[in-house]
Each structure stands twice: as structure tokens, then as C-alpha cells.
């Protein structure tokens, strides 16, 4: 027997009214459960109406379906609310225990090395440096030659290099990024290059064949060694606190002249401790004024421009900061380690 839309709509209103009456009279969980069976069970009042839906004309079905769905939802909500009202009353005295643990979250985290790197990046970006990145597989030219380290140069001994065939190798420092940047840009330049570097070291507590380095470069007219000292000192104080002191010692790198090693004052404030081997100073890395020969490779005029460059090992700083005594731990990714950061 075909039904028409009006009768269905009318029946929906009737059922709604009946339900409202019933639900108001319920006084307990059981009463409510009975109302639920009457209206929502498989043979309940609402389900019967859904069956009738199939007998409607096609164009009427969505409207009726929508109305019926709304009714079903309203009934369900009202019943849930009622059931809850009985429940909460009870739980507030008997079942509620505020000391149960909250639901567990998945807690994300950043790797400690990259947290330190983020901090370093922030400090230098704040001082007007732009971050540059480059490939880890480099050419001999960019890793060595353009940095004034010709083939057969004794200082190549310091860079125990992984070779990949042809002119390719794994970069031993992030300094090739300086060269790429200078090849593409004219001064003024103020950049840092963070990234992974590779040296053929057998892994032990203080050596890793893979490590992270940040190299900085500033080139402009009239840049001096005093500027280099200023920037490195500002960095030390931002990283390790206002009391941090910096010491520069002469050294040798083929791509800088004058060259320096720089140390930060130890946390023991010069008293001497195990970390600084009783010297009061922590060796950080190398720095210096860009060697004019390097400018030659990138076509900058050393009569016009001067610059400074500096490097630092991220692991070294992270080890000092977090008191990690074995560099390998950073690369094991033991979650018991990671979740501490």
C-alpha cells in the first residue's frame, strides 16, 4: 500500500509527541531502557516508519528520510541524556576517581642535536645571518680546491675523506656551502651553513664518522678580525649565558688567514674540572679571516672585500649542554634517550 509524504510527516510528529511524554515520565535507568526498546529497537516504532519509506515516490524519499533521521537522532540524544543523568548522579559519589591517570597522549619531540642546532640557528638569524644548505655529496673542487686546499696539500691529512669515485666525495665540512653561496651571490654576505659532515673516523665515545657542523661566513667591505671576535663572543653569551668568555688562539686552516681556534670558558668558571681537563677552557672549533686565495676562486676582489668564517661542531655543544659523554648516543635513537628531550 503506497503512503504519501503527508501521512508519513504526520506520523513522525505523533511519534515525537508520544516519545516526549514517555521520556518525561521515566524515573530510573530501567524505565528509560524500556522507552528505548519501544522507540529504537529493530521492531520499534521508528524502525517501522523507515520500512514505509520504501513505498514513497522517489522524489519524496529524501525529505521523508531526512525527517525520520532527525527524529531518530533526537530520540537517541534524549535517551542518552536521560541515562547519563542517572549515571552522573551516582558516579559523583561512588565511581568518579580524579586520581586515575588521564588518557595517554603521543608526545612528539625534537632530537637533541637538532634542538641545539635550532638554538644556534635562532641566535645567528637574530644577528642577521641567513641559513644556507647544500648537498652532502660534494665535489673535490668545492670541498677542497676552492677552499685553497690543492691536491697533495698536507692539510688534507686532517680531513680523512670518504671518496665516492670520480670527483665526488662526502663533504668533510660544510664550508663548500660558502663557496656555492659566494659563486651565486655578491657581497655583502652573512650566512651560516648547518649540516651533516663526514670523516673517516672509527666510531668511539668522542668520534663519529658522521657529525653536524655549522659554518658561518661574513663578507663585506672592511670586515675585521675584531668583528669575528665580536660575533663569536655574542654567540657564546647567547648560548651559554652572559658570563661566557671566549679565547682565540692562532692556528692554521688553508681557507683562513689569520686562522684561529676558539675556546669557551668552562662551566667551572676557570676553577678547572674534568670536562675542561683542568684548563678552564673548552675547545670549540676554528675560525679566521677568509684567505684571499678563496676570494680568488669565487671572483671576489680581495682588495675590496674582506670576511671572516667560523665553524662549530653541533655534537660538541650538545654534549656540553646536556652532559652527554658518548657521541654515538645521538645516532642510536634509543627512545628512552629521545623522550628525555
Amino acid at each position: 500500500m503506497a503512503e504519501n509524504l503527508q501521512t508519513i510527516i504526520a506520523q513522525i510528529s505523533e511519534i515525537a509527541a508520544e516519545f516526549n511524554k514517555d521520556i518525561q515520565q521515566t524515573k530510573s535507568r530501567d524505565d528509560t531502557e524500556q522507552v528505548k526498546v519501544k522507540f529504537l529497537s529493530r521492531k520499534g516504532v521508528v524502525q517501522n516508519l523507515f520500512v514505509l519509506l520504501g513505498t514513497l515516490e522517489n522524489q519524496d524519499r529524501p525529505r521523508a528520510g531526512a525527517e525520520l533521521n532527525r527524529l531518530k537522532n533526537d530520540i537517541q540524544n534524549a535517551i542518552d541524556e536521560k541515562l547519563k543523568s542517572f549515571q552522573t548522579g551516582k558516579r559523583s559519589i561512588e565511581l568518579f576517581d580524579p586520581t586515575l591517570p588521564g588518557k595517554e597522549y603521543h608526545i612528539g619531540s625534537f632530537h637533541p642535536l637538532l634542538q641545539v642546532l635550532d638554538e644556534i640557528k635562532d641566535i645567528f638569524v637574530g644577528m642577521g645571518f641567513r641559513i644556507e644548505e647544500g648537498n652532502e655529496i660534494e665535489t673535490d673542487y668545492h670541498n677542497f680546491e676552492a677552499l685553497n686546499i690543492p691536491p697533495d696539500h698536507p692539510s688534507r691529512d686532517m680531513h680523512d675523506t670518504f671518496y665516492m669515485g670520480g670527483k665526488y666525495l662526502l663533504r668533510t665540512h660544510t664550508s663548500p656551502v660558502q663557496i656555492h653561496t659566494m659563486e651565486q651571490q655578491k657581497p655583502p654576505i652573512r650566512m651560516i651553513a648547518p649540516g651533516k659532515c663526514y670523516r673517516k673516523d672509527t666510531p668511539d665515545a668522542s668520534h663519529s664518522p658522521i657529525f653536524n657542523q655549522v659554518e658561518g661566513l661574513c663578507v663585506d667591505k672592511g670586515v675585521s678580525f675584531g668583528d669575528l671576535k665580536g660575533v663569536v663572543q655574542a654567540f657564546a653569551q647567547k648560548m651559554f649565558g652572559k658570563d661566557a668568555k671566549v679565547r682565540f688562539r692562532p692556528s692554521f686552516f688553508p681557507f683562513t688567514e689569520p686562522s684561529a681556534e676558539y675556546d669557551f670558558s668552562c662551566f667551572c668558571k676557570g676553577k678547572g674540572c674534568r670536562v675542561c681537563k683542568n684548563t678552564g677552557w673548552l675547545e670549540i672549533s676554528g675560525a679566521g679571516m677568509v684567505d684571499p686565495a678563496v676570494f680568488g676562486f669565487v671572483d671576489y676582489d680581495p682588495q675590496v672585500y674582506s670576511g671572516y668564517a667560523f665553524g662549530m661542531g653541533v655534537e660538541r655543544i650538545a654534549m656540553l649542554k646536556y652532559r652527554v659523554n658518548d657521541i654515538r648516543i645521538f645516532y642510536e635513537n634509543d627512545v628512552r634517550f629521545l623522550e628525555q628531550f
Binding site: 652573512r190 663585506d220 678580525f225 671576535k229
Partner: peptide
Amino acid sequence: YDNIIPVLAPPVNQEQEA
């Protein structure tokens, strides 16, 4: 090197983009 006075010059290139 200890006697060279550190200078903190303003950034040389304020307009460079991130």
C-alpha cells in the same frame, strides 16, 4: 689575539630574505 677588541657590528645585510 687576546688583545684584539671584539666588535659587534650591526648586520651587514638587513634586507636579505629568510
